[in-house]
Simulated scan of single mutants.
Amino acid sequence: MSIQASAVTYTKAGPDLAKVLTNTKFDIDLSKIKPTQVVVKALGTPINPSDVVQVLGVYPSPPKFQQLGNDSDVKYAIGGNEGVFKVVAVGNDVADYKVGDWVIPKLPSFGTWRTHAIADVTEDPFIKVSSDDDSAIDLNEAATISINPSTAFQLIETYNDWKQGDWIIANAGNSQVNQYLIQIAKIYSINTILIIRSGKQNETELKNELKKLGATLVFNDEEIKAPNFIKELPELTSNGNVRLALNSVGDETVAILIDALSQDGTLITYGASGGNKKISYDSTAQLFKNITTKAYWLTKNTKANPQLKVDTINKLLKLYQNKVIQSPTFNKAKFDQSQDLAQLVLHSISSTTGKQVIVYE
């Protein structure tokens, strides 16, 4: 039996995505599967900003070049770093996976924008998250568990001595990471302040939605930059300990984050969605409050310590199963074999209606 498959591939990164990304079709001959190999079928693969900048060639994590089917020796870079797959065939020596298991790639650069993949289990390529039998988590949760909720969880796990009533403040308040962060923080009895961009038409609705998810306070960037705004918040004036500030934008709100931090607080930069900008703030805050600034990058953490990623996923699975966190909404782009997968990915990248996840029929 042969499976007809598709992948969104490229041979060289570049700025024109329409020219760089190609829909490459290939076959997988199941009779040629090696004893230690498994074949997986895509169920859902998100389109993340980091995936796009990797294709553009500006992401510091290079893609992995690999062959697609059984026979071709040509190797391609395959777009995408996140997604959930179902095992559809296993080699004779495979004991840890069975047909129907739901798995996610353990390491970055697996190449998730494809309908099928062959993987060798000796390389320990996957983390099992569910199966057709137990339905531990749903497709929405499984497809998006690897990056944003893992980032949020690890940012909070940076500390192991949180005290009830401690605070976190973050810019890019309505980002996917922060929507998970406020839910996880609530479990730890940590208060959160989110900063969203001003001028949004649905600002009141957005603030209410974030508070329903668990945010303590939500302000726009115009409100919060008023003189002494943070220092005069009633919730903070009575010994409110703002231990952690999270920056994923790199704009003028960084100075506000620093100003909000309490004595011995920490600023962590984990993204740069605002582009290549300089971060600036009053140096006396660092001097007199003993502020620490550091970076966080999930990809680097995972490569350095793959077991940390496994542990993070297993802890998140329990939170999902206990219904104490939920996935933010996203838009599904449905794919069937009559479509050009690369064109669907390009359309999803250009969409302005929020996070896109390709689901495969």
Rank of each mutant, 00 (worst) to 15 (best):
E205W: 03
I358V: 14
G354Q: 07
N174S: 11
N322Y: 02
P15E: 12
S262C: 01
Q263E: 02
T112V: 12
L21Y: 11
A95W: 02
P46Y: 14
E222D: 13
Q176N: 10
E361P: 05
T144L: 05
V90R: 00
V310A: 12
K163P: 01
V357C: 14
I313P: 11
W297A: 06
Q66G: 05
D251A: 14
V249Q: 08
D264N: 10
S6F: 09
P63L: 11
A13Q: 15
D134K: 08
F110V: 13
R243F: 03
K186S: 12
V8L: 09
V84Y: 02
D71M: 00
T292E: 03
L346V: 14
A272K: 04
A143F: 03
I196E: 06
G240Y: 04
L316T: 02
L246T: 08
S248W: 04
I325K: 10
Q37Y: 04
L213G: 06
K207M: 08
K211R: 12
K207F: 06
V74P: 00
E203Q: 13
L30T: 14
V99E: 10
K186Q: 12
D221F: 13
M1S: 15
K323D: 14
T112I: 11
F288I: 01
G80Q: 01
E205L: 03
L107D: 05
F153Q: 15
T293Q: 09
Q154G: 07
N314A: 01
V8S: 03
I268D: 04
E223P: 04
V218R: 01
N220F: 07
N305K: 03
T299N: 09
G100E: 10
S175P: 05
I358N: 09
I127Q: 07
T22C: 10
S31Q: 11
V20R: 12
N247A: 05
D251S: 11
N178S: 12
F219L: 08
V8Y: 07
K334L: 15
K332N: 13
N290K: 09
F288M: 04
I230K: 02
Y76P: 00
P35M: 06
S338W: 08
S273C: 07
A119N: 03
K200L: 09
W167P: 00
L341C: 12
L267I: 09
A89S: 13
P63A: 14
K98M: 05
F219I: 04
S175I: 05
L346C: 14
Y97V: 02
G199C: 12
A136R: 14
S146G: 06
F153H: 15
S61M: 07
V218H: 04
K34E: 15
N160Y: 00
A185P: 10
A226V: 06
S351C: 09
Q201K: 14
E222F: 05
G165T: 10
K318Y: 05
P149K: 07
I325V: 13
A142C: 06
